[in-house]
Structure formats: structure tokens, C-alpha cells
Design a protein around this nucleic acid. Structure first.
Lengths: 117, 117
DNA sequence: GGTCTATATGCTCTAAAAAGAATATTCTGT
DNA sequence: ACAGAATATTCTTTTTAGAGCATATAGACC
């Protein structure tokens, strides 16, 4: 992927938040909706873009779809993910997402077993 | 600057090329035009954006305006500039620009003394 | 097979970004 | 003060990206 394209992909707060959550581990769509507090279409479309660009993969588990970071990302992508974790430490949105993520995953115990109820 | 904003700024090939050239050292607008082979307006506008975002500074020297990278860039920006140099090694546009830059700066000897003629 | 649930897709509207033509500004040298 | 050179700005047009509604798909469970 061209560098400019990669940057366009990252030039959206929603997608950055999705990626940031995925850096913590796999997650299903409904949890993204909960955590970001955003409508289903929005989440789904942005995840779709990330998937179309090969940054993430998804698999189905029962009724839910689980997304996770693609393995073996290119060097450029690795660098960006690293930069993201760094920045996430200082930007409040990301911290807020993290808090919510922990709440959700505590409630759910095993993320996958008891998804959205 | 928010991370998403920073990425938007970098999500344009022209701006990436300008920054990449600036990583080699200060350069005047007319040389950017020569090297990128792009119209004056285009160059000037993109440089304007970079300047408005604080990534670069400019100063006047005789008839010309010299741009250079801002000193003490934030960590996020440093990381992006580093990523850019890495990627530039593999993307042909950037290599082509480098070649042209060297041609120009050889011709001109001291860049500033004999700018565009 | 039918129904329900979770997610994805198509279509439309709006907003933001890029390009280009024409013009303005700012300095230089006379 | 004037003319010319280099760069910036304004305005318009075109392109691209995001949001949201409505609808489609795909699997789960009865």
C-alpha cells in the first residue's frame, strides 16, 4: 500500500479507535458499538475499510463477527500501530475507550463466550 | 495536533514528497516546482498547509522563499518523519525526487546563492 | 422451512479536500 | 517610484470521504 493511502486510512478518529482497541486483542462488532457508542452502520463500514485494506481480519463465531489485527503486518503498518499506542497514552478518547473495554471484558468474562446480551 | 489530523496532513502524496525533500535540507519553492514538476499554485498551497500545521517554517531570501522542517517536532511528528524516510527507500516517486534534487543542488552549488534561473 | 439476531451493503446527501485560473502581494533592482 | 520576479491568496469547480436510512445477507435456533 502506498504511504499516502495508508495515512488516509488512519486519518479518521473512528478507525484509529478501532485499531487501538484491536491492539488489546480480538473483539466483536457489538462490543465496538458499545465502547465507541456509535451506530452499527458506522462501525461496520469502518471495520469494512480496515479489512479491505488488509489491516484486520474477521471470522464468524455463532451470530457474531470477531475482528482482529492481521498477522505479519508490513513494516510501515507496524510503525503506525506503534505510533498509535504511543499517542493513545496521551489522547483522552483512547483512554476512555480502554476503560470501557475493560468494563466490557470483565462483564463478559471470556469475550467470545458471552458476547452482547 | 490530534493523531487523525496529523494523518490527514500526511495523506497526500504531494505533501509527503515535499516533506521528504525537506528531510534532506532547506529548499526554495521554485526548486520544489522543478523537482515535483507541479504547477506553482499546487506547491504553494501544500507548503502553506504544512506551514499552517507547524511542520515547516519559511523565510525569505532575496526573491525566494526557503522552506525547512520546523525544529523540535513533537514525538508523533518525529515518528512520522522517520517512517517517511523508511518508506521513501522503497517507493519510486521519492527516489526519483531525490535524483532530481541532487541534480538541482549540483547545478546550483550553494542552493541559496543561485536559486532558480 | 421460518424467524430472529448480528452484521454488511447500496443509495443518497452533505461536507471536506484538491486542483486550477486569475489576481494580489511582497520584495528586488533600477 | 517603477518594472519584474517569486510566491501567496481568492474564488470556482471537481473529487473524495463520511454519515445515515433502508434493505440485504448469513448463520442460529426452533
Amino acid at each position: 500500500m502506498q504511504l499516502a493511502k495508508l495515512h488516509s486510512l488512519l486519518a479518521d478518529e473512528t478507525r484509529l479507535r478501532l485499531l487501538h482497541l484491536l491492539l488489546q486483542g480480538p473483539l466483536c462488532v457489538c462490543h465496538f458499538q458499545d465502547i465507541l457508542d456509535a451506530p452499527q452502520v458506522k462501525i461496520s463500514k469502518h471495520l469494512g475499510l480496515l479489512r479491505a485494506s488488509g489491516l484486520v481480519t474477521n471470522r464468524r463465531h455463532k451470530n457474531w463477527v470477531i475482528y482482529e489485527l492481521a498477522e505479519k503486518p508490513s513494516g510501515a503498518i507496524q510503525a503506525q500501530l506503534h505510533a498509535l499506542t504511543q499517542t493513545a497514552k496521551t489522547e483522552p478518547v483512547f483512554q476512555r475507550d480502554l476503560k470501557r473495554l475493560h468494563k466490557v471484558s470483565n462483564q463478559a468474562g471470556e469475550i467470545i463466550s458471552a458476547c452482547c446480551s
